[in-house]
């Protein structure tokens, strides 16, 4: 695809993609890469300095920080990705229906989304977590519930924009079924834009999930999670402030990588993409 060609020229975007992929792979192979069990406590070696066997030292319960960071990828990053995928799936499905079918069904979906969107997303998340109670599943559901309406609207307007294209009219006239047109023509066309939105939002979801875990509303101890690790670090700030560094940096790195990749994707897919501007940027 020519998108890939253009993207390859952007060194920083490739770097971001590389970072994200390596983090994801590390998370997948966590049991092989982590030096210790993230849940294994050993009070005798609490607050240990960085050493060969404990590269980042240990926390207040003697658990290996590096291992907790690595396993934390599974919680923080994977859960965010799952959240994003579900949000997009729901948003795209409803958006395609609302945009393509219009009429009562389309209008109904649209009005419902408007209503949901009048709720600010932070409030929506708190409301849902409030009702369902703390817990990581509830946090994921809350995040999905707060964002799917936005995606539905966005997809719907993209569909409206694209379904006016001539080749769609032609397909309709030629007698192809609605479902076929939806899947074969409209979906690939909007996929690019959806990808950009999704990448940009992944960072936001990661921040949200770790924030809720930080408050104690998400992951429950002792599951390793970056936000939760910061919560624990907060309590022993006066004794061992260095514990605050690693989880925060981890969040920063992956969110920055997602944001950067999203920005680059958007610049690449934008028809107003200006090679001169790109030249000036580098």
């Amino acid at each position: 695809m020519q998108v890939w060609q253009k993207l390859k020229q952007d060194k920083m975007a490739l770097l971001s993609l590389g970072i994200i992929i390596s983090i994801v792979v590390t998370g997948i192979f966590a049991p092989f890469l982590a030096p210790h069990d993230p849940l294994a406590t050993n009070i005798k070696i609490k607050f240990a300095e960085a050493s060969l066997s404990y590269p980042f030292g240990t926390d207040q319960l003697g658990r290996c920080i590096l291992s907790r960071l690595i396993y934390g990828i599974r919680t923080t990053v994977f859960l965010s990705i799952v959240t994003m995928l579900l949000t997009i799936t729901i948003g795209v499905s409803f958006g395609l229906i609302a945009g393509y079918l219009r009429g009562i069904v389309g209008e109904g979906i649209l009005r419902f989304c408007d209503l949901l969107l009048s709720f600010p997303s932070e409030i929506m998340i708190l409301a849902i977590v409030g009702m369902l109670g703390p817990g990581i599943g509830n946090v994921v559901m809350a995040n999905i519930a707060s964002k799917w309406a936005w995606y539905t609207r966005m997809i719907r307007s993209l569909v409206l924009e694209y379904s006016d294209e001539n080749y769609i009219h032609f397909a309709k006239v030629a007698g192809y079924s609605n479902l076929y047109i939806l899947c074969k023509h409209l979906f690939p066309a909007i996929l690019g834009k959806v990808l950009v939105l999704a990448t940009l939002d992944t960072g936001w979801v990661i921040l949200n999930i770790s924030a809720l875990s930080f408050l104690g509303l998400g992951v429950q101890a002792p599951t390793p999670e970056w936000g939760m690790m910061l919560n624990e670090a907060k309590n022993i700030m006066t004794i061992r402030p260095s514990l605050m560094l690693a989880p925060g940096l981890a969040i920063l790195i992956i969110v920055a990588a997602c944001n950067f990749l999203g920005d680059s994707l958007r610049d690449t897919l934008d028809p107003k993409h200006n090679p001169i501007k790109a030249g000036m940027k580098l």
């Binding site: 700030m237 402030p241 920063l252």
Partner: peptide, 18 residues
């Protein structure tokens, strides 16, 4: 700015408190 939007606010908060 780019970094600031990627930083979790609670982390910045903790660092600044410290």
């Amino acid at each position: 700015i780019f970094l600031a939007t990627a930083m979790p606010s609670f982390w910045v908060g903790l660092l600044l408190i410290w």
